[in-house]
Design a protein around this nucleic acid. Structure first.
Lengths: 277, 277
DNA sequence: GTTCGTCTCGTACAGTGTTCGATTTCACTC
DNA sequence: GAGTGAAATCGAACACTGTACGAGACGAAC
């Protein structure tokens, strides 16, 4: 986003807050810790648009550009803030319950952390997660799936699938909540605002009519909770099934997974063209 | 994002491109269609930061502010562009193959569409999807799960789970690809740049060491493809299992799902405080 | 020719992230 | 205490952004 481009030529350098040492500072007033804390309270209380360097500086009682002594740019600040949120994810100890309970309560914990910090959804998959908290969490998650019986890359794949589901399902929930808070409307009013579009959609696609009708009768929050649980259960069931399959057939021949292979090939799409305008 | 705030008071109004009639225009030069097309080529060729109203106007050979005659603001433009991408998702006819094949090839198609338009990942769950293409797609997906045997809200839940997984798993892939393109580094160089952080993480969390070692030996794209397939298979297996369970027990008693209920309650977190700074 | 609705667009405003260089602050040495 | 050099702060400026506003241009109907 904020990587500099000089006359169309891209700066060929990757940088992250975590790839270099933080400034060793015996600062009296400021410091990374306080900056990050202030940024989070700003984000939590007033949303993502409220976090500008100037406002953050004002909140810290210092000049806006003073922050750049501790942080190279805003992206790095966001990396720090993101890792702070990763620190709020809880992965219980797999020695105390089943892997399935660990995975499930991790998913619920992650979902709740995301909802506590709605702004983080725009960061969580898009910003490199190299911070200590992210690493610790990933380590515990991988260990959980190791203990469960997954071997090799499957440990990664399982963890990735779980996190991906949580991120994917929470994104639209937060979007809905954010528009509610932004517009000051409750979900009834919001539904009413969407009404004409929905009715037209229901007319064009009759299979949706029943869906909308049923949805309108439900409480939004419980519908969301049920939705979340539904997919999570499916995913965990699928993981468990794979585990059982592997257990009953210790060495998995390469062609074994063909039975569940979908019609479309798992091909990688070609790289999109760039600067072709 | 761009909803106006007057002296701290939020404009209590929801609006979307789809909630009101487009300007009926017999325009000679401009028009929504051309604007959206130009915006997409700009986004595809130069990334999300390249889409500013001024640049878009320049590309269209017109003034920047002329666009506002056809579109209320930039968010609405993005809504239009998003729906255009939704139009690229393909949902095969469920009458021709199994629901499982439909779901799988939808997932692959959605993933490929997202990768064709990497900028869309910041929109896909965050912008209301009320456009005709989104509706058509959702209708076909719901019909697929109806035909599969899902009943009531489960049709929605299944569709949501599938889309959520695809979005969630594709997000970090695109993030990686975007940083590659932005920095001009290939994945080897990028891995090298991250090296120190990874090594420290491996030292602190030994369970990650084996993961990184194995990952380094793999081709990134095939690892991604395998990762995608792994979670997708799990999800579809879980959906199928639920279907079989429902089939063998036509009426599902309320307590039936308790066996797969996780430790944490599916509670909804309290609304975050606002303007409390 | 006048008028009216459609459409274009230059200007301006308030805001953004960030650079640069001057300035302040502060611990430490002489 | 005076002096010094590093650490830290910050005001001004730059090149952007989205978009409100109002003046003007165009074409058709009367």
């Amino acid at each position: 986003m904020y990587y500099r481009i000089y006359a169309g030529r891209v700066k060929e350098h990757f940088s992250s807050v975590w790839t270099r040492e933080p400034r060793t500072t015996k600062s009296p007033a400021l410091g990374r810790e306080q900056i990050v804390r202030a940024a989070m309270t700003l984000l939590d209380s007033e949303g993502p648009d409220a976090l500008s360097m100037r406002r953050l500086g004002a909140k810290l009682g210092s000049g806006a550009t003073s922050i750049y002594w501790y942080v190279a740019n805003k992206d790095e600040l966001l990396e720090l803030v993101l890792d702070e949120v990763y620190g709020e994810f809880d992965v219980p100890d797999v020695d105390e319950t089943s892997w399935r309970n660990v995975a499930a309560s991790f998913a619920y914990g992650m979902r709740q952390a995301l909802m506590r910090h709605p702004w983080v959804i725009n960061l969580v998959g898009c910003t490199p997660a190299l911070g200590p908290n992210a690493m610790r969490m990933m380590g515990r998650l991988v260990a959980t799936f190791d203990r469960a019986g997954f071997r090799g890359m499957d440990q990664d794949y399982a963890a990735s699938a779980l996190m991906s589901y949580v991120i994917g399902v929470t994104t639209p929930e937060l979007s809905w909540r954010n528009t509610m808070e932004r517009t000051g409307l409750d979900s009834n009013a919001l539904n009413a605002a969407i009404q004409p579009v929905v009715e037209k959609a229901a007319a064009d696609h009759p299979e949706l009519a029943a869906r909308y009708a049923e949805f309108r009768g439900m409480d939004v929050d419980t519908a969301r909770a049920l939705n979340f649980e539904f997919g999570l259960t499916c995913l965990l069931d699928g993981l468990e099934a794979r585990l059982n399959r592997a257990a009953s057939r210790p060495t998995v021949p390469p062609g074994d997974r063909a039975a569940s292979r979908p019609a479309a090939p798992p091909g990688v799409p070609p790289a999109r063209p760039r600067h072709s305008s």
